[in-house]
């Protein structure tokens, strides 16, 4: 198996799992959002890795007869990035409201307040 072979996928999996770990193990809501966007970016990298053709060029028609990379993943990810930031903004907005209602953005403190009341 010549390099890079499957190496790219393993890096993607590492990044993805790191994002997942941040989401699960950290109680701070903003840090959870950061973890979520790490996870998201790793999926983007995964898609674009799959779309690459060895020796290919960017999918814009140029004279000659070059090999193009697959444009389909690019299209899917292009829209996904912008939708991702829109949903991120939505999540942050909810966090800001939570901070106003509870005075904290730590998950366990919010839990405690809920139990006390």
């Amino acid at each position: 198996m010549e390099w890079p072979g499957l190496f790219n996928y393993w890096i993607v999996i590492f990044l993805m799992m790191a994002g997942l770990y941040v989401v699960m193990a950290r109680a701070n809501l903003i840090k959870k959002m950061v973890g979520l966007s790490i996870f998201q970016a790793s999926v983007f990298i995964f898609y674009l890795t799959m779309g690459k053709v060895a020796g290919g060029t960017a999918p814009i028609v140029i004279p000659g007869n070059p090999v193009y990379s697959n444009p389909l993943p690019h299209v899917l990810i292009l829209t996904a990035i912008v939708v991702g930031v829109a949903t991120l903004a939505m999540g942050l907005a909810i966090i800001v409201r939570i901070n106003e209602a509870y005075g904290t953005i730590e998950e366990d403190e919010i839990d405690q307040q809920e139990h006390d009341s």
């Binding site: 903004a89 942050l92 907005a93 800001v96």
Partner: peptide
């Protein structure tokens, strides 16, 4: 749409 939404979101956060 994208430009307006981004400006609107930023203004919403900054206005808070």
């Amino acid at each position: 749409t994208v430009a307006s939404v981004m400006v609107a979101i930023f203004f919403a956060f900054a206005g808070r």
